[in-house]
Design a protein around this nucleic acid. Structure first.
Lengths: 218, 218
DNA sequence: ACCTGAACACCGTTCAAGT
DNA sequence: ACCTGAACACCGTTCAAGT
């Protein structure tokens, strides 16, 4: 019925990935859910790698970043990171997708990267520093936000169970070799603490850059 | 001849991974190189996941971190990150291994994490902030250092060719949508710039934490 | 305790063929 | 242009059996 289009395939893939993890996204499984032969997908994607590229592109696509020379670069960088973080929280499989993919192949990611580069250059950083900083902030946002995502692999009560199990595992570690982990089992396993991540986490990322920028000015 | 031991398997796996990438490390390939049946490995490892856990543990094992109450926490955190970065540069597959693995299952990683937690707690951060910060700094170090690694997938001249190709790809992007990437194709593809990564990169990571700590004191 | 043989249920991918 | 059928070369893993 519904024609097999690139977009439909990618969206279905993201649904599976968000629900069951990226490793559940296989060509054969995808084809089955779309009511089609595995080989049909090879008409729309050269190979599986390009399918994942498509997933990544779809995730970042709608960011609509408009570099604005009149607003301060810190503010705009913060906004960029904020968008990344929110997207990562909406899509549990986004972190895995962005880690697996060669980001150079993802147009939407390159646009984000280009914008970030423009901002750090404007901040006064040199070419090589800007490369490092942008890599750092984008990777950092993915790692930080991704780590805070509750994977919905098993439904809400399955998630709570998963957290409980992890906590128990921490608590039953030998306290003489892992004193802090044992003692902090509860805060370590508290996830989805959105507020803390959105404020403290992003602050942490940006304050590093800002203090490096301060050294440039001083 | 040489008996099939857990350690021998893990070391062989790391050799393959460093040389050809983690995706080349398969049970069957590993068994073949060790002159043994694939099923022999299942005597020493419950499954492939546990093999990768073993690889990760072996990578971090020799860190010998001795928390020293008399030295400043910044210095010790910096040393910890430095060790991680150097290990990641020595082992091209380390980043992939540490991303794939469930770090909770890796004793050596838990010891590093515990040490880092002890240091941030001593710095005056609260429990939840310490969790965030340690996750941030460990993940950040992995992402930053891993991104600077030259994968020896194809030998030295194959690597140079790979860089050249990537550079050309950047340069031939549409300059109106990716102005900065096109203009900075050269610095973007310069890798193995060890000095810059070891100083600026680690500074960047730590200055974020230090400026957050300054807010606590102030 | 340590390893083998045979089998199972999965992958991604190619290539010729259909409409 | 868009999809199917059959086949190939790979995976990880189980289970009974060997020494």
């Amino acid at each position: 019925m519904g024609k097999l289009t690139r977009e439909a395939v990618v969206e279905r893939a993201l649904e599976i990935g968000d629900a069951e993890g990226l490793q559940a996204v296989t060509i054969r499984r995808l084809a089955q859910e779309l009511g089609v032969t595995p080989m049909a997908l090879y008409w729309h994607f050269k190979n599986k790698e390009q399918l994942v590229v498509g997933m990544a592109d779809h995730l970042i696509e709608g960011f609509e970043i408009t570099p604005d020379g009149s607003r301060p670069w810190r503010e705009q960088l913060r906004e960029l990171v904020g968008r990344l973080v929110r997207m990562l929280r909406r899509h549990p499989c986004a972190e895995a997708v962005l880690e697996e993919v060669d980001k150079m192949e993802v147009p939407a990611f390159l646009r984000v990267w280009d914008t970030a580069l423009g901002l750090t250059l404007r901040a006064g950083f040199g070419a090589r520093e800007s490369c490092l900083i942008t890599r750092y902030i984008l990777q950092g946002a993915i790692a930080l936000a991704g780590g805070s995502v509750e994977h919905r692999r098993c439904g809400p009560e399955g998630h709570a169970e998963h957290v409980r199990l992890k906590r128990v595992r921490f608590q039953s570690l030998p306290p003489d070799t892992y004193p802090n982990i044992v003692r902090m089992a509860v805060p370590l396993t508290e996830r989805g603490d959105a507020e803390l991540y959105d404020t403290f986490g992003v602050d942490l990322l940006l304050s590093g850059i800002e203090s490096m920028a301060a050294r440039l000015d001083g």
